[in-house]
Design a protein around this nucleic acid. Sequence first.
DNA 1: AGACTCATGCTAAAGTTTTCACACATTGCA
DNA 2: TGCAATGTGTGAAAACTTTAGCATGAGTCT
Lengths: 205, 205
Amino acid sequence: MTETQIPDIVVSRLPIYLRALTRLQQEGQHITSSGELGRRLGISSAQIRKDLSHFGEFGKQGTGYQIEFLIKQLRQILKVDHEWSVALVGAGDLGSALARYNGFRNRGFRIELIFDNDPAKIGRELSGYIVQDAALLGTLIPQRGIRLAMIAVPAEAAQFVADELVKAGIKGILSYAPININVPEGVQVQYIDPVVHLQRMTFYC
Amino acid sequence: MTETQIPDIVVSRLPIYLRALTRLQQEGQHITSSGELGRRLGISSAQIRKDLSHFGEFGKQGTGYQIEFLIKQLRQILKVDHEWSVALVGAGDLGSALARYNGFRNRGFRIELIFDNDPAKIGRELSGYIVQDAALLGTLIPQRGIRLAMIAVPAEAAQFVADELVKAGIKGILSYAPININVPEGVQVQYIDPVVHLQRMTFYC
DNA sequence: AGACTCATGCTAAAGTTTTCACACATTGCA
DNA sequence: TGCAATGTGTGAAAACTTTAGCATGAGTCT
């Protein structure tokens, strides 16, 4: 396997594979096949094999994949074999829910800084951390070398916050604001907007 | 334009267009072009024109698109020209945040039923509604003819809840549980898992 | 009115992604 | 041991998606 450019669409499926494999492992299984995995995910087995083949040969003919090994490989590929610190901006309802969510930890992430610009929230404790003044964002983030951030602020503030985050050295932003954000080259943005997902379904209803 | 099958990938972009157009409208603009929209979204203008062309001719040569008109058309295409009632299962941190989120209303959705199975939560008020016993799900959902649901329960419970929802007549599920759900033909599922999004970014970091 | 600019909708071409189908390795069993 | 069953990795084909480029209509300016 040479160092070719991996298609984005392939990369975007790896976390799904990792999630399903982890599930299988929790269920006590040690070995699986592209067929079984595909059935679970509603994906063809050929696609799974082809996706994985971009990174190496992880399976054994006639047998399938050793789950523990494949998980380890995927974690390495996705660089979540170590923990990433994440900054969270916005400590409202959604931000609080994210801060308290304990599903980040064992999947490679930890919210380590929480910001808000509401004086009523600054200084308060949230899930073991003190909510910091958003004005300190430019200081604290570089100080800790944090590269990932989540935005849970109103749409109006999202672009401003994103700009500040980029200035602070953030390289990846996960935004919950229902608006498109513009960032310079080299910074990635992902969006979560439940309404978009709902609207994708109503078309077919 | 004849009644051909619309590619999923095209449908999945329409909510993004709708969102951006609504934004432009809020900014006071009345007319836009595929070029402007594309620049905002990081999409080529040709793609936007091609996507829209599946549904009709909405623009005017030399001028562009009338925003108000295009919004109306997209709402109609996505069937969000009327409000959809949505059931929410799970009234924990995340469920509560969703229940209180007021971004659903003006985009075509309203949470109208909230369920939980925790006796401590059942009967309590949440965002103007009483949290119902999840055991009543099979009664209340058909009663109100609700077809969409959101799942905000722990991964362990998600498949069970989904099964119940399907039995109750739900046709579209938006799941926040970090697990793949199996549903029968004709029922749609969409997933929101922040970790998946974060992992898609760490690959490139 | 004529010349120019702009931006659509469309066809064709280019590019990307998925599926197919098969050689080959491994396991289990008679 | 030989044979059937299973399941990988892959090259080639098929399917799908995006981009390019152009004919055309609509506004604008002189």
